[in-house]
Design a protein around this nucleic acid. Sequence first.
DNA 1: ACCTCATATAAGTAATTGCTTATATAATAA
DNA 2: TTATTATATAAGCAATTACTTATATGAGGT
Lengths: 114, 114
Amino acid sequence: MEKTYLTVEEAAQALKLLGDKNRLSIMRYVSVDECCVCELVELLDISQPAMSQHLRKLKDAKLVNEKRKGHWVFYSINKEHPGYTMVQGVLASLPNGKEDLEELSNNNMRIICD
Amino acid sequence: MEKTYLTVEEAAQALKLLGDKNRLSIMRYVSVDECCVCELVELLDISQPAMSQHLRKLKDAKLVNEKRKGHWVFYSINKEHPGYTMVQGVLASLPNGKEDLEELSNNNMRIICD
DNA sequence: ACCTCATATAAGTAATTGCTTATATAATAA
DNA sequence: TTATTATATAAGCAATTACTTATATGAGGT
């Protein structure tokens, strides 16, 4: 596996997006499992439009994938992004989002959206 | 060596600073060797006040150290920063700044400032 | 067709950003 | 002291940011 580099511009563009605590948390969660918008709203405690706007930025930068399932739209980390390795490195220095997602499950809050 | 985590806020603050191509390049250079302001101005081709302002932000966040030597002020990466490991991970996905610094040396441009 | 739910978009706004130009400070040399 | 050099700071400004509220879209159920 050959090591490939990002340009400074590419890296800076991705890092700028990660340099917001809400978006960084979104990445933390969608790197564990795909999440629907309402789950992320629940986890981060921000408004639905604010969440939608953050997700659009991440999607425009191709850092996340979008997938519709009926009413819901699920987002997941894009492992094909050239900066994926860098992003994973960043996320590795943060506590894993898995616990928070499991807590959502335990409270039967995954995909409630009511 | 126990693994320690950053908070999302701590990481986001550091990443926001890295999310600018000029500051990211500064970090790229000062991680290789300590650099004086005029060298960084030469390397990045931005104005001296703009450089000074970027350095102040990095210094305020303690991502870099400052050291005076006569006329010159040298900056170097702060290995004691809690986010140092994360920063190194980010820089590892970029081409090393060493070549550019060596080119400066070859052109006898290190600490000219004239 | 209509209603509801999940999500997206639009428009407006206050705060922040990264620059510019001009000036101040700090260190050394004459 | 005065001059020179390296760097920092101040003030101003256009662009960008992250939110808000209001409205639109898209999918499913009745």
